[in-house]
Design a binder for these strands. Structure first.
Length: 768
DNA sequence: TTGCGCCATTTTTTT
DNA sequence: AATGGCGCAA
């Protein structure tokens, strides 16, 4: 098979480039996976490079598997020794191999996930006598993670403000605790490799000699530490093949820095750049719309993207009444498209936040349509799954105090807070990690300890079990070990409390048992590592006819014939947390761009008039990004400017609850720091657009306007009525709804915003 | 020590 | 809507 056949000129140039530094700027749908796989195959077959000399970094494990598969097909066989995986997986493997050369770690270190990290931080805060109200663990974690992504050690950390000073102290403590626990967090995986290479150049040299060719996918989303690692690896040979697109950089918040592309030019002056500009995925309409959107970003560098799929269905835009109407409309649309020979798995429904998936799921369930949810409450984050993994981790690594404290009294075995604290103190006094101390307590009759009676008995029993598991783990498979643990702690009985939830939880444990496999000879350490590094989209198999529900972030790198992007509202997309900062706002726009460019044939955009978020329903303002779209490419309702502004004034999105006095509360009247939505010459172009209040007919392929779901029937109150509330004063009823025996009334109180009230409790007085 | 119920707070996105 | 923290009763 000719590896260069069926490639366009640019692709061919990239695939067959001589060794050296090459940056491939790959627009959406330009066949970058194809280029990467063909490049690897080309290296092996045409340039006679041993697979052993190649490292390929992908963004997800799934991408790695997929590429492996495709290379296998290209080469008629599996290349031996090719190192392919995510930064995290590659680094974890490397560290495990080099564990003897690491200064602060020993064999069998474990990887702490976010929940574990938070535990360590809480502990650190307590030890430092810092108030966790004043210094939220999440914020601390963020600070630490950012530092690590920028390759800043605790000693190098310089605080620039009050919070920073706390982060500095917590970071130091945190890092110490991780070491004592023989644990690393996600960021450490990369950082520790870089530090290792810095400290021991001879180790680095070994890897430099091995990896003659380094390939990186999604280069725009590498952080400073990862970039440094690439620099180290390519030290003397400089053969790096980086593929990326700054317009698809959507992980700034986790340290990604697309300026690494500039660094690349600086650090590899002899590098070449190849642009992949032909899009093989989308129709002209979709591509035009996407280009138009991304063009509104200030530092966007224009590309000449083109497609050979002229025309196409216009982008459909519609306003739904609320999130359930939005979801119902999507389901209706999918159903009618399925009558026209679309399959369920031709569709993807995308949203900005995971919380939005709920309403959509409900609509799918109601309609009996199969769907597949990516992410959300991740499997490995479930309590019961984490519990069991903590057991396994503790068996693997007795230094892990976080797992120890998690499982010590789960299921409850009579070891309360009191005893737990006492035990930890005793262990610390003896200079041991708690699980080591427990082993001693259970196996050494001469051990001196302060425990008596009930507490002693419970500890002793648990310690004996633990000692037995440790021995057992050396000669049985992961699955068998898991079975033994589950049985001996009676976990099933603990979970199954008669509720459906209990059943579900046990089912999850069984699913985990399935991951461990029946006859798998996988080592416990490998199992734990694999389980720690699974990604969101890794489990996304294209089985079944199910529609995919996923966040815009998770959609990166995927494609679907028909894409629905939901919640195009201010505060959601762009997200309220990103609206004050121009860079973050630009990233939100790129996120929208990524969503749009996932689509092959058709795009449906929607926003809701009202949206319920954590309990409260409020009026939503259509996203400013909608005005980036040229009218000619859009079919459907356009939000009118007049109404938009009046809604804007009432909206309770974003900031704190409105209070009287002080600065004006309406975003459109607040000064300076905030951009008025739409009516702005940089972001919007509404001035050039006729004031549209026209309602166009629904898009041709939605098969008619679906009946609106349950319009509320008013009972005692009516929309438009003026009412008086004891606390809020006078207001106007904007919605009422009979719920069971009560009536729910939504009232707009001038200056206070919109409140949802129960008629029976609120005792509203009708004024007129 | 356990377990329940109330309260407050929460959500951006993920390896 | 859901989770965690906290106080109180058994």
């Amino acid at each position: 098979m000719d590896l260069l056949a069926n490639l366009n000129e640019a692709q061919r140039a990239a695939v067959s480039a001589p060794a050296g530094a090459l940056l491939v700027v790959a627009g959406p749908g330009s066949g970058k996976t194809r280029v990467l796989t063909h490049r690897i195959a080309y290296l092996i077959r045409e340039m006679r490079v041993s697979p052993w000399h190649i490292m390929a970094v992908t963004f997800t494990n799934k991408a790695a598997r997929e590429m492996e598969h495709r290379i296998e097909q290209l080469l008629d066989g599996r290349p031996q020794g090719l190192n392919m995986g995510t930064f995290h997986a590659i680094c974890a493997r490397l560290l495990r191999r080099e564990v003897d050369t690491l200064t602060h770690y020993q064999r069998d270190f474990v990887i702490f996930d976010t929940a574990d990290q938070l535990q360590v931080i809480k502990q650190a805060l307590a030890e430092l006598n810092l108030d966790d109200k004043k210094f939220p663990p999440n914020k601390m974690l963020n600070g630490i993670s950012n530092a690590k992504n920028d390759l800043i050690t605790p000693a190098e950390y310089v605080a620039t403000n009050y919070t920073g000073a706390a982060v500095q102290r917590v970071y130091e403590r945190y890092q110490m605790t991780l070491r004592v626990n023989n644990a690393m967090d996600f960021d450490d995986l990369m950082m520790n490799v870089v530090l290792l290479f810095d400290e021991q150049p001879e180790v680095m040299a070994r890897y430099q000699e091995r990896y003659h060719h380094v390939l990186v996918d999604e280069f725009q989303d590498t952080n400073a530490t990862q970039y440094r690692l690439l620099r180290q690896l390519t030290g003397d040979h400089n053969s790096i093949f980086a593929v990326g697109d700054s317009d698809q950089s959507i992980y700034k918040w986790r340290g990604a820095d697309y300026r690494n592309i500039q660094n690349f030019y600086r650090d590899y002056p002899a590098s070449r750049t190849i642009l992949l500009e032909q899009n093989y995925r989308s129709t002209q309409v979709i591509l035009d719309a996407a280009i138009e959107v991304i063009r509104h970003n200030r530092d966007h560098i224009p590309k000449k993207l083109f497609t050979e799929r002229p025309g196409g269905t216009k982008i459909s835009l519609r306003e739904a009444y609320n999130e359930s109407d939005e979801a119902a409309t999507i389901v209706d649309t999918i159903e009618s498209l399925m009558l026209k020979n679309r399959n369920g798995n031709d569709f993807a429904v995308m949203y900005r936040t995971n919380a939005q998936s709920r309403a959509i799921e409900e609509a799918f369930v109601q309609a009996g349509l199969p769907y597949r949810l990516v992410g959300a409450t991740q499997f490995y984050q479930r309590r019961e799954v984490k519990d069991i993994i903590a057991y396994l981790r503790l068996i693997h690594n007795p230094l892990d105090a976080v797992s120890f404290n998690r499982v010590l009294n789960v299921p409850t075995r009579g070891i309360g807070q009191q005893t737990q604290a006492q035990f930890n103190a005793w262990a610390a006094a003896g200079g041991r990690q708690p699980a080591e101390a427990l082993l001693r307590l259970a196996t050494d009759p001469d051990a001196q300890h302060p425990f008596t009676g009930r507490a002693y008995k419970a500890l002793y029993q648990f310690g004996s079990l633990y000692a037995a598991w440790r021995t057992l783990s050396e000669r049985v498979s992961v699955g068998e070990l898991l079975d033994a643990v589950l049985e001996q702690i009676n976990y099933r009985a603990y979970l199954e409390d008669g509720t459906e939830e209990g059943e579900d939880r046990w089912a999850n444990v069984m699913e985990l048992r399935g991951v461990a496999g029946v006859d798998s000879q996988m080592a416990l350490g490998d199992f734990l590592q694999q389980v720690s590094l699974v990604a969101e989209t890794d489990n996304l198999d294209s089985e079944a006819q199910a529609t995919t529900l996923l966040t815009l972030h998770a959609a990166k790198g995927l494609e679907f014939p028909v894409v629905f992007i939901t919640g195009l509202e201010e505060g959601l997309l762009p997200h309220s947390r990103s609206m004050d900062d121009e860079d973050e706002l630009a990233e939100e726009r790129r996120l929208f761009y990524v969503g749009l460019t996932r689509a092959k044939d058709a795009i449906y955009l929607s926003h809701a008039f009202r949206r319920t978020s954590w309990g409260d329903s409020s009026v939503a303002v259509p996203s400013r990004f909608l005005s980036d779209l040229p009218d000619a490419l859009v079919d459907g309702q356009r939000p009118g400017n007049r109404r938009r502004e009046s809604i804007d004034r009432m909206s309770t999105w974003g900031d704190k609850p409105r209070t009287s006095g002080g600065r004006p509360t309406s975003p459109s009247t607040s000064s300076g720091d905030r951009r008025p939505p739409v009516t702005n010459n940089v972001w919007g172009n509404s001035s050039g657009r006729p004031a549209q209040d026209e309602r166009r007919l629904p898009p041709p392929n939605t098969a008619g306007d679906p009946p609106r779901r349950e319009r509320p029937v008013s009972a005692r109150y009516k929309t438009g009525q003026k009412v008086r509330h004891a606390k809020f004063g006078d207001g106007t009823v904007i919605e009422t709804k009979v719920t069971g025996s009560d009536e729910e009334v939504v009232v707009a109180f001038p200056g206070l915003g919109i409140k949802r009230l129960a008629a029976s409790i609120a005792a509203l007085e009708i004024i007129e």
